[in-house]
């Protein structure tokens, strides 16, 4: 069952920038979804529209069946947002600012819940500190506590680990896993591919306001993945012989290695023919290995394709 349903979402900013060009996206309940994309691809715009901070130009967004415009109260109550920027009220205490958010979203006071939440985020000792006294990492934790203050079903994390130290990053992922275990749906944007690979059930790649790839990791690999055959040569080659110019080949490691790129889904990989031609050209080799492209390779190639177009 999808908990977020986005149809034909378009956003044109006043300056004329077309930030989203008709995005369709469904996110399932309890899923961890990663939205990948370079800066300016439209990730934050997409999140901001769902959360009610930016108005859409066209299309529709439903949160658990509730339209974000006509049933905005029901839709927004379900959502918690951790924005990219550390924006806090400098003079408020940790406790007050988290309690404020809970009230703002219409929830009754529940000190026991807030206590558990602050302890979970190792903020309990700091509950009487004012925001301006906290380090950047602590402020980030407070932002997460605020987003969770009203017990949302859906949590948006916009670039959650940008500029975050190792410890906080590890804590954050532990928290994300625990939240998912509680049934919370988590949508995060990132340009750290390892994060998406490690954490997300599904990944969407956004580029220039369009969703250019979508699926779970294995699907994306199958859809867009390429394999590389590495051939370790007996003797280094100064240049590729002319008869091999028609092949997608690169020389690597000072000419000691020949890399052949091929489509893993293709019926004919061309490997037997390539090996015969190597023999005919008198190029000897001693070992072979194949490598599947990583999500990062896929991402980079998708983004490059966009730059070229």
């Amino acid at each position: 069952m999808s908990v977020i349903d986005i149809r034909g979402l378009v956003k044109a900013y006043k300056g004329g920038t077309l930030a989203l060009k008709g995005v369709d996206l469904s996110i399932g309940k309890g899923e961890i979804f990663a939205l990948l994309g370079p800066n300016g691809a439209g990730k934050t715009t997409l999140i901001s529209i769902v959360c009610g901070i930016v108005t859409k130009t066209a299309g529709s967004v439903r949160v658990a069946g509730d339209d974000i415009e006509t049933d905005y109260r029901a839709a927004r109550r379900r959502i918690g947002l951790v924005p990219q920027e550390l924006t806090t009220d400098a003079f408020e205490t940790v406790w007050d600012t988290v309690a404020f958010t809970r009230g703002l979203f219409g929830c009754a006071r529940d000190d026991a819940y807030l206590e558990r939440l602050l302890k979970r985020l190792t903020l309990w000792e700091k509950r009487h500190s004012r925001m301006l006294e906290l380090s950047g990492g602590m402020k980030r934790r407070v932002m997460i506590a605020k987003a969770l203050a009203h017990e949302p079903e859906i949590l948006f994390l916009d670039e959650p680990t940008a500029g975050v130290d190792v410890e906080l990053r590890r804590d954050m992922w532990a928290l994300v896993r625990a939240l998912r275990a509680d049934g919370t749906t988590i949508i995060l944007t990132t340009h750290y591919i390892e994060e998406a690979e490690e954490m997300a059930d599904r990944v969407g790649v956004i580029r220039g306001g369009e969703l250019v790839a979508l699926g779970n990791k294995a699907e994306l690999m199958a859809q867009l993945g390429r394999r590389t055959l590495k051939i370790f040569l007996d003797a280094p080659l100064a240049a590729l012989p002319e008869r091999l110019h028609g092949w997608d080949l690169d020389l690597a490691d000072g000419g000691r290695e020949l890399d052949y790129h091929f489509d893993s889904k293709a019926e004919e990989t061309g490997i037997p023919r390539l090996m015969r031609q190597l023999d005919e050209a008198g190029i000897g080799w001693r070992d072979l290995t194949t490598r599947q492209s990583s999500l990062e390779d896929i991402f980079v190639s998708l983004v490059r394709a966009g730059d070229a177009s």
Binding site: G52, Y72, R76, I79, D89
Partner: peptide, 9 residues
């Protein structure tokens, strides 16, 4: 911090 007010129900 207006983001919070705007995203509230």
């Amino acid at each position: 911090t207006i983001y919070e007010i705007l995203s509230a129900p």
